[in-house]
Design a protein around this nucleic acid. Sequence first.
DNA 1: GGAGGCCTCGGAAGG
DNA 2: CGAGGCCTCC
Length: 760
Amino acid sequence: MQDFINQLNSVQQEAVLSTEGPNMILAGAGSGKTRVLTYRVAHLLNKGIDSFNILALTFTNKAAREMRERIESIIGPEAKNLWMGTFHSIFAKILRNEHEKIGYPYNFTIYDTQDAKNLIKSITKELGLDDKLYKSNMVYSRISAAKNNLISATAYSNDASILSEDKRMGKPEIRRIYSIYETRCLKAGAMDFDDLLFKTYEVFKKFPDVLLKHQQLFKYILVDEYQDTNYAQYTIVKMLAKAHNNICVVGDDAQSIYSFRGANIENILNFQKDYSNTQSFKLEQNYRSSKNIVAAANAVIAKNKDQFQKDVWTDNDQGSRIKVVKTKTDNEEGKAVANKILNLKLEKQLENQQFAILYRTNAQSRSMEEALRKLNLPYKIYGGLSFYQRKEIKDLLSYYRMTFNPNDEEALKRIINYPTRGIGKTTLDKLILTSNKNNKSIWEVISNIDSYETGIGNGPKLKIKNFVTMILSFGSELFRKNAFDLGQHIASHTGLLKDLYDDKTPEGISRYENIQELLNGLKQFSAQEESSNTPSKTLDKFMEDVALLTDADNENQDDYNKISLMTIHSAKGLEFPYVFIVGMEENLFPSQLSVNSRSELEEERRLFYVALTRAEKAAYLSYAQTRFKFGNITYAEPSRFISEIPLDYIEMPEVNPPRNYAGTRLAESNSFVSRSPIPPGKKLVSLEKAEKQTQTSNTTETAKRSPVIKEGQTVEHLRFGRGKVISVDGIGPNKKAVISFGKHGQKQILLKFAKLKIVG
DNA sequence: GGAGGCCTCGGAAGG
DNA sequence: CGAGGCCTCC
């Protein structure tokens, strides 16, 4: 540990050693930011600062975990006591300690965005408002924005300019929805993500003693990715730092890409004004990328007006110029990228994990996936539906939530009739009506159902009582069983496990497996149990973490050597030797919604900067001339960002004649432009047909290698075992077979996905 | 209560 | 195009 300092360059060293007062570290892309942060904390501890007195805030669990692990490897288990985590998890911890001050139970539930939107939907409905006008997404983002700007429901209702804006949009009732939303959350003992920030602010503001306590506790404060902070985060940090004034923020204004969710780049641009006598450090040496990439990225970002002057440079090799690839269609683009990856792999003996394909929108992943699948290139997609958002997982978690907080209404609404127990929509509506009328939670109503005028008949009433008894029985086990035992008990006792087990469709099987995975997680959690008479790893403790987890926290072991596919947003903070940035088209990247405002266009440019600077050795840009958008073919122009890269650093595609792209070993399949399915001059209508023809001919091509499935054959399926092919239907990628699998019954199987082996 | 048909709408996304 | 919401019909 003694000479960790020597591993740093001189600016990095200064940034680590300058522990007192306000410090701002501007960290260019790939400049060793994490290293500086971890060493800075290690240095503080080394100096004798108590780990309990250090607060380090990040935006993602992953960043917090990585930092903690690295610090632990330097200074040992002492690192466990650091206050290190995401804004949300640290503030949730504070709020659980101070729950009484805001009238919440200790075990408050954290509503995710889906819960919050569902609640908004039901409020809109109960108020009899038009749900086309008051779309839950829109209302949610309005409320969220208000909270992130520390505007309470009351303040919202009294703010003339907000009200007139709502009125102008024809939506004057948002204030009412907001205010009822707040009441309902309180009644349910629930907070949404924004509340974790907003209520922390409120507690600090209303209770100076609580603020003072935390100001004294957090003698040293660090904030990572400061350019991504919103007003609430900015304000709370400022409040906390007031006493000791030891605040260090780290960030890069050039990588601010989250303004659409409230991040305010001004926070970092104004840091020196906010905190007098700021020491600032610029980490400008890039350790990640080639000279060529650094130069190209610098040239791009220089087009932005508002930024700190930075001079990012590197000692790395010159590297090759950025290559631009042009294809006729989005599917061709996918093929070109996949072919290029295959070539590079063979040519340079590379691993899959050295490649990333980055795109602006999730929808673009499809053409990439198809092409990769055809070449048998393993890939992993980040983003999309998260594990914790899956229906079956949310259902089971809803039971868990109700076990320790039965007032949780969104959980109750999900499970009161799942698995089916005869408490239908009509009954639920009556319950909601009664609970609203009496200003009680639904749980309070159903657990004393006889004392309310609900208009519910005796049949359903009995079923409700059984449901209540069941939930109560789970609650009584909460502190007697550990998380796994109770979790398992709930999964089976509710009938949820059996319900999923009985479903033998592939989706059903996967749902069952997901539940098993969740239970495995519980098992691991409970295994950390200390030896004592009462379990400490109880279900409610497990749930404290779960609400704040995301998919990125669930890295799968067998996913490690795969090509990464993700949006540029989720690539921030990552690096790959070879990076493909696809869909470089006007109205896609930059997005159509951004091209009319300077600030939004600048944010898109920062996004492009982030994308480029992910690359270590080489970056490839590609664009298609036509692309399927919402089922229609649209024409596209190459992105303006391509032309913002000086010609010294980039290789443009040769328009005429079409030529192969770089490596030529697999010349035939490696061409980027020569495989156009459309003869020049043909009209648009024929495009779709032509596309289909290519797909068909490709299938014939692959047929040489993979078996042709025919009627009457016996085949073996990974999951269903042996079966007989009844019929084959469709062409190209849509080719599917009806196969009879004995005890699993008849299945329709898309051949392009299924791994079928011909047995006879 | 659930399956299936019709309609609508579409950005990026951590906690 | 395709996911999700809503409605209808059984």
